[in-house]
Design a protein around this nucleic acid. Structure first.
Lengths: 196, 196
DNA sequence: GTGGCCGCTAAGCGCTTGCTTAGCAGGTAA
DNA sequence: TTACCTGCTAAGCAAGCGCTTAGCGGCCAC
């Protein structure tokens, strides 16, 4: 039974992700979510405390995943140039393949309760800090050249986040193709000196 | 009376912009809009057909303004490099200063009726085409160098649009400062050869 | 002065919302 | 067989939703 219960919980979670991404938190009803999971409206409250709590869980999981992704990419090398390429590639692929979840993560923050928002915002700051550190270390090492590392790092994140907005599964580019091109752009953006 | 009436209409429009931007279309009630304009809920329907119609008017006006901005910037010079700088600067300043309206323009498209959405989408395609043309003309003239002008143009627009998401009035950079830095980034992104 | 008009509101209609409650099948244990 | 537990649903509640209707008050031409 535990297995079945976990499955029902996960189906509700997945249905909520789909619905929130397509129609937004306020545009989604608890009936939408329940019927998307093939259950009655009341079933939602067997497994989740409220609609907002469900949004929070989705946002929490999405932000944690993104932070982990970024940290892993940074840890994959000691060379700022390699770190930049790893972070940008992982970040862009994640925002393209996971655009459904990423839309909730980036565009439904206003629907979170103040307490939940503050907690999520702290994770966002850590993600931004990781990117800023990569750019700053590259500049210090003489591998990058930019007049404002802070804004440059923000632009790099911005570019990746916005992929979740415009990416379509049926589009002409695959997530990997976009990521490859964005890696080229990233090197230019940070003013990377000629490679090894 | 005409003057007073136009004023009331504009106040409702402005209140809707504020509310839609802060809470999203579905998160905003007609009572929010009316009270934001200092009027009773019924007053909204004296001046606007429906809540969706109001969103459409806001989206329509915002997209027209953006397209005009881009077209003017492109027309300001015959040199691709100058055109790029003019477009990026105007685009970024617009998305920072007008971030309230720009958020509705870019993130509330899903709430439009299918007919309204199609009309708006056509304007968006024209905006994208303008940017693509600038990049392609630059490449043809040998002023720019990029492996995929289409995706590069998309990245430039993407960078500007996302400013509307993260920009804060109380932030450390002014719209002009952001635009100036983004112009530098834009030249790098398109692989501009050394300037005159 | 007065009849007509116009911008606006008070009140409320029908419906949908998030969420609760009472209870029902079907499996488990003794 | 019986008593119980677990995962779920049918039904529905109070509140809030978009929008409508009937009518009021102040300004206008005459």
């Amino acid at each position: 039974m535990q297995q079945v219960s976990q499955d029902a919980r996960a189906r509700l979670f997945a249905a909520a992700v789909e619905s929130f991404a397509a129609k937004g938190f306020h545009g989604t009803t608890t009936r939408d979510i329940a019927s998307g999971a093939g259950m009655s409206p009341a079933a939602l409250y067997v497994h989740h405390r409220s609609k907002e709590e469900l949004l929070y869980q989705i946002s929490r999981a999405g932000h944690d995943r993104t932070l982990a992704l970024v940290e892993e990419a940074v840890a994959s090398s000691r060379d700022p140039r390699e770190q930049l390429l790893a972070v940008v590639h992982a970040f862009v692929v994640h925002h393209a393949e996971g655009h459904t979840g990423a839309r909730i993560v980036n565009y439904e923050l206003a629907a979170l309760s103040p307490e939940h928002l503050e907690e999520i915002a702290a994770t966002r700051r850590r993600i931004e800090q990781e990117m800023r550190d990569v750019v700053e270390r590259g500049v210090e090492a003489g591998a990058f050249s930019t007049s404002d590392p802070h804004m440059t790092a923000l632009a790099l994140l911005s570019l990746g986040i916005d992929v979740a907005r415009w990416y379509r599964d049926e589009g002409e580019w695959s997530p990997a193709q976009i990521a490859d091109h964005y890696c080229e752009l990233a090197l230019r953006i940070v003013g990377a000196t000629q490679g090894p």
